[in-house]
Amino acid sequence: MRTAGLATSRMLLFVPALAFCLLPLSARAPQAALDLDGKTVDPIKASRGKIAVLIFVSTDCPISNRYAPLLQHMNEAYSTKTKFWLVYPDKRATAQEIANHLKQFHYSISPLRDPDHSLVKLAKAATTPEAAVFDAQGRLLYHGRIDNWYESPARSRTAATTHELHDVLEAATNGKPTPLASAPAVGCYISDLE
């Protein structure tokens, strides 16, 4: 009994120290993520004045994967004025798994790991696949679906009839106000990946 009592009291004494420890952590740059070598990358800064387009994806979400050819195509079509990033919010996805995923789906978009969901929070992302568009000053111009291909995880159109990400990029790359700020995405929940 005595030993247990002492142990609990020691735990209690540590609490303030732990709380103190959290402060510098939360003060860390919120848009920090890691490249596949484990180096910290701030995608907004690293986009060097271009519009930053974050695409949240996961390796095992079929809806996310079905978008690969379209995303790759958009990355090429907008390459002069934008910088695309593929963000993997699943902390279990290793650098090697991500590298394999890029190869399998013929992605040439720069990958980022976001294990502590700092980019997820910054982009207000909830789903894979989902897009977030930032201007050069780091302001969030749009977050949400790529288009309306899927209406629910079980129902898709033969082809999308609205193209939100395309419309936003057309406006943003031409210096015009973006037509909408957000639209709910359909896919796999990022909240499950915490």
Binding site: R92, S152, P153, A154, C188, Y189, S191, D192, L193
Partner: peptide, 19 residues
């Protein structure tokens, strides 16, 4: 299950899964 928990709760409620 845990790493797909919310998704499962959602798709079962909408009767998307199991098909």
């Amino acid at each position: 299950l845990k790493s797909h928990a919310r998704q499962i709760a959602d798709v079962t409620q909408k009767r998307i899964m199991p098909p």
